[in-house]
Simulated scan of single mutants.
Amino acid sequence: MKQIVAALVLVFTSTGVRAQIGVISPIEANKLIENPDPAKRPLVIDTRGGYKDYFRGHLPTAHHLNFDTLRGTDHGVPVQYLPDDLTRALLVRAGVNKNRMHLIYATGEELPNDEILSASMVAYVLEKYGVRNIQIVDGGLPEWKKQKLPVTQEYFGNPSGTLPETMNLGIALNIDDVLSRKGKKGVVLVDARPKNEYLGEDEIWLRKGHIPGAISFHWARLMEKDNTHKFKPFEQTKAALEAAGLTADKEILVYCGTSREGSLLRFYLKHVAKYPNVRLYEGSWKEYVSLKQYPAERTENKAQ
Rank of each mutant, 00 (worst) to 15 (best):
143 E>L: 13
117 L>Q: 09
51 Y>V: 11
149 L>W: 10
58 H>V: 11
277 N>Q: 08
138 D>M: 05
267 F>Y: 15
21 I>S: 11
170 G>H: 13
161 G>L: 02
39 A>D: 06
14 S>C: 06
282 E>D: 13
175 I>T: 02
178 V>S: 11
163 L>T: 03
200 G>Y: 02
26 P>T: 13
214 A>N: 06
3 Q>G: 05
142 P>V: 03
129 Y>S: 03
252 I>K: 02
262 G>F: 03
294 Y>D: 07
72 G>L: 04
7 A>F: 07
171 I>Q: 06
17 V>I: 12
246 L>M: 11
242 E>R: 09
139 G>E: 02
2 K>H: 12
228 T>D: 09
7 A>I: 13
23 V>I: 14
94 A>G: 00
178 V>W: 15
167 M>G: 08
37 D>F: 09
271 H>Y: 15
59 L>F: 12
41 R>Q: 14
68 D>T: 09
89 A>N: 08
117 L>W: 10
154 E>N: 04
48 R>D: 08
164 P>C: 06
295 P>F: 09
68 D>L: 10
200 G>S: 06
105 Y>L: 12
146 K>G: 15
149 L>V: 12
170 G>M: 09
231 F>D: 06
132 R>H: 05
160 S>C: 03
257 G>W: 04
174 N>I: 14
140 G>V: 00
175 I>N: 07
146 K>D: 15
66 N>I: 03
304 Q>P: 15
288 Y>R: 09
77 V>E: 03
48 R>G: 08
150 P>I: 04
161 G>H: 01
237 T>I: 10
191 D>A: 09
199 L>P: 05
42 P>L: 07
255 Y>C: 08
268 Y>R: 00
276 P>G: 03
246 L>V: 11
76 G>N: 06
205 W>T: 07
226 D>Q: 15
83 P>M: 06
78 P>N: 09
22 G>Q: 14
37 D>S: 13
255 Y>Q: 10
115 E>Q: 05
125 V>D: 02
199 L>C: 00
98 K>W: 05
214 A>R: 11
232 K>N: 15
277 N>K: 12
103 L>C: 13
83 P>R: 05
165 E>V: 09
262 G>L: 01
177 D>R: 13
215 I>P: 00
162 T>M: 12
219 W>C: 03
297 E>C: 10
298 R>E: 01
244 A>C: 10
105 Y>E: 14
194 P>D: 04
229 H>Y: 07
110 E>A: 12
275 Y>A: 02
54 Y>Q: 04
299 T>E: 12
128 K>V: 10
274 K>H: 12
150 P>M: 04
85 D>F: 00
297 E>H: 07
150 P>F: 07
98 K>S: 05
275 Y>G: 01
40 K>G: 06
23 V>T: 09
142 P>E: 11
47 T>G: 01
169 L>K: 14
264 L>F: 11
128 K>C: 05
166 T>L: 11
245 G>M: 01
233 P>V: 07
293 Q>I: 04
164 P>Q: 02
168 N>I: 02
120 S>D: 07
116 I>Y: 00
196 N>G: 00
302 K>P: 01
72 G>I: 03
25 S>A: 13
180 S>I: 04
69 T>D: 10
5 V>S: 02
92 V>A: 08
114 D>H: 09
23 V>C: 13
41 R>P: 04
124 Y>E: 00
174 N>Q: 11
43 L>A: 10
105 Y>F: 15
237 T>H: 10
87 T>M: 09
